[in-house]
Design a protein around this nucleic acid. Structure first.
Length: 267
DNA sequence: ATGACGGATCTAATCCGA
């Protein structure tokens, strides 16, 4: 059985608990990383997900905003949350688990959105985003000999075909050169491989987020690839499948992000 | 390009998302 890992910005786990449960029933990933749970740890629907077979959970919540969690069928040997930029917010959690006898580390990130104005001198949120991505360069694809997978809402669409219009989005936060260059620096420094782009060539448009504000998200199709799955090269070469669940954007009361699922055969 | 939507919060008007 291949190992499967899913990532999904859920935009309030309490509001979309039943959607998560339906997703788990249908897709049965070994691990699910959630971002923007928007609740405190004691409000997280732990028991409901436990009932679905996800007995092992690592939750880093905060009131109202952000918050990340990992649901797992497999036990963790360690979990950790790092406070990037010393903001006291909840944007990272990691766990180590076993896959076919060897350990794998999983990092789950929610990178700051960055506000509207793409100028770090005028906009502190954009400055925070750039500093956050810079700090992420210390996260390596292999750490203490353990190969890693890094997933999450990185809030940056790095390639031209990661957005509906490269030209029209060059000055829009999420696709500005200073952001995409920063993310590429972090990606290269960590020694990562981009699993979505390993499966779907860069010539092809692929999105994981569509705004709520479009009248018809599907017809206008002005999406962006903001969610990512990166892995150490030795894990990347074991990828057997990857799916971006575009149809999830059309579910009832959807998140504005869709799940991405990767399968790795580590036998 | 913006913000037509949608979420959370000191439940009403405001902040935030990207």
């Amino acid at each position: 059985m291949p190992l499967s890992i899913a990532t999904w910005n859920i935009n309030s786990v309490r509001l979309r608990q039943s959607l998560v449960e339906e997703f788990l029933d249908e897709y049965q990933p070994d691990l699910l990383c959630l971002q923007e749970i928007k609740c405190q740890n004691d409000q997280f629907p732990e028991k409901a997900f436990r009932k679905k077979g996800y007995e092992h959970q690592a939750v880093k919540g905060q009131k109202g905003y952000h918050g990340v969690a990992i649901l797992s069928k497999r036990p963790f040997s360690q979990t950790h949350s790092r406070d990037f930029c010393n903001m006291g917010d909840s944007r990272h959690i990691s766990a180590v688990f076993e896959a076919d006898g060897s350990p794998v580390r999983l990092h789950n990130f929610y990178v700051p959105a960055g506000g509207d104005e793409p100028d770090p001198k005028k906009n502190p949120k954009f400055d925070h985003k750039l500093r956050f991505v810079d700090e992420m360069e210390a996260v390596s694809a292999i750490e203490d000999d353990i190969p890693s997978v890094l997933v999450g809402d990185l809030n940056i669409a790095p390639l031209e075909n990661d957005v509906w219009s490269h030209k029209q989005l060059l000055k829009i936060v999420s696709h500005t050169p200073v952001e995409t260059e920063g993310l590429t620096r972090t990606f290269n420094k960590g020694g990562w491989t981009d699993l979505i782009r390993q499966k779907i060539p860069p010539e092809e448009k692929i999105y994981t987020w569509w705004s709520y504000r479009a009248r018809d998200w599907e017809a206008s199709d002005r999406g962006r690839r903001l969610d990512h799955i990166w892995a150490a090269p030795q894990l990347a070469e074991r990828m057997t499948d990857l799916k971006v669940l575009k149809h999830a954007r059309g579910w009832e009361k959807p998140s504005d992000h869709v799940p991405v699922i990767v399968e790795l055969d580590l036998t």
